[in-house]
Simulated scan of single mutants.
Amino acid sequence: MRAAFASSFNDADPLAGLTVGEAPAPVPGDGWAVVDVRASALNHHDLWSLRGVGLRPEQLPMILGCDAAGIGPDGAEVVVYPVVFTPSGEVSILSEFYQGTVAEQVTVPAYNLVPKPAELTFAEVACLPTAWLTAYRMLTTKGRVEPDQAVLVQGAGGGVATAAILLAQALGARVYATSRDASKRERVAALGATALDSGARLPERVDVIIETVGEATFDHSMKCAKHGARIVVSGATSGHLPKVNLRRMFALQLEILGTSMGTPEELSALMTLLANTGVRPVIDSIIPFSEARTAFEKLHSGDVFGKIVLDHTT
């Protein structure tokens, strides 16, 4: 079958280890199912895999990709939930221990197949299992956002941040979003959020902060938090050792919460929210699977707003 996989590691030039070609078709184990993939979405995790982060040489070749949607063994339309437990009981996502989704087929535990709502396309739901599910959990389970509350999204433009902007509004919140990039601020404003330069003073203190940037924005996040606010962290792209003002933390009774991904039940709830509200993922581009390398090159360039989706029917 056709697949895009890591055949070697190269930290300086991750695309040097990318191979698009033939790979063995998956053989499902007991309780597992094979999905015929119709669409998959790329994540920066794929580039880290090509750099060798989280993988060992003896695991190569490893099919890339965490996110996918397609047709299950009973003919039903499904979304693939990407979190799988390894034989030792460790939590892993597809393309770390088990082969990934950027292929004609992928095999996962049957429990990982979540019904796809008819209102959403394969391309739309393929965007959800990693970035959008993480954003949804940050806002709901961890952030406990309520209608009419205020949310700050740091580092707008990334997959999780873009999802958080749209989801927070769908949940009834006022949304502020920051970016150093003027063009991204324009796009954020078009999504309905109040766009601000990084570090800018907000019109009000907020109830929930979506933090994926880390060191570069964390002090600003602390200063923007109102009494009892939740700072929810799912990434640290600028560094993972920020200074934390403990006096502000205990005086304002702030919560700093870490999270990643979500559950199959949360993925189902996320899709129901989108189906009911009409909110849809921001898709930067849909690229034919036959041009998979082009899609990875675009991701690596950084010139992306929203998700890159591969159409596996072409």
Rank of each mutant, 00 (worst) to 15 (best):
L152V: 07
L128Q: 04
D148L: 15
M138I: 07
G155E: 05
T141A: 15
T141F: 10
T121H: 09
A118P: 07
V160R: 00
R137G: 03
G159T: 10
A118Q: 15
A110H: 09
T134A: 02
K116C: 11
T121L: 05
T141R: 14
Q154G: 01
L171C: 04
G155V: 06
G143P: 10
T121V: 08
R174A: 11
R144N: 13
A170G: 06
T121D: 10
A150T: 09
V145K: 09
T162N: 11
T162L: 12
T130I: 05
L139K: 07
G159H: 10
G159C: 12
G159A: 13
G172K: 07
T121Q: 09
A150F: 04
K142Q: 11
A163G: 04
M138Y: 07
Q169C: 00
N112S: 14
V151A: 03
A150Q: 04
P147K: 14
R144P: 10
Y136L: 06
T141P: 10
G159P: 03
P109K: 10
Q169G: 06
A163I: 02
L139E: 05
A118G: 12
A168Q: 03
Y111N: 11
Y111E: 13
I165D: 02
K142N: 11
A164M: 06
D148F: 15
F122Q: 02
T162I: 14
E119M: 12
V175I: 09
A126K: 00
A135R: 01
A164E: 02
M138R: 03
L133F: 06
V175A: 04
A161C: 05
P117V: 02
A126C: 01
R144G: 11
T140V: 14
E146Q: 15
G157Y: 00
D148P: 14
A173T: 06
K116P: 06
A161L: 04
E124R: 06
G157F: 03
E124W: 08
Y136H: 11
G158M: 10
A156C: 09
L166P: 01
E146A: 15
L133W: 00
E146I: 12
A170S: 04
P115Y: 15
A118Y: 13
P117D: 09
E146T: 15
Q154C: 12
Q149H: 15
N112F: 07
L113H: 08
Y111G: 11
G155L: 06
Y111A: 13
L113W: 06
G172Q: 10
T140E: 14
K116G: 09
G155K: 04
G143F: 05
P109N: 08
E146W: 14
G143T: 13
T141G: 09
A123P: 01
A150K: 07
N112Q: 12
V125H: 02
P109L: 09
M138F: 08
L139N: 05
Q149S: 14
T162M: 14
L166K: 10
T130Y: 01
V125Y: 03
Q169H: 04
P117E: 06
V160A: 05
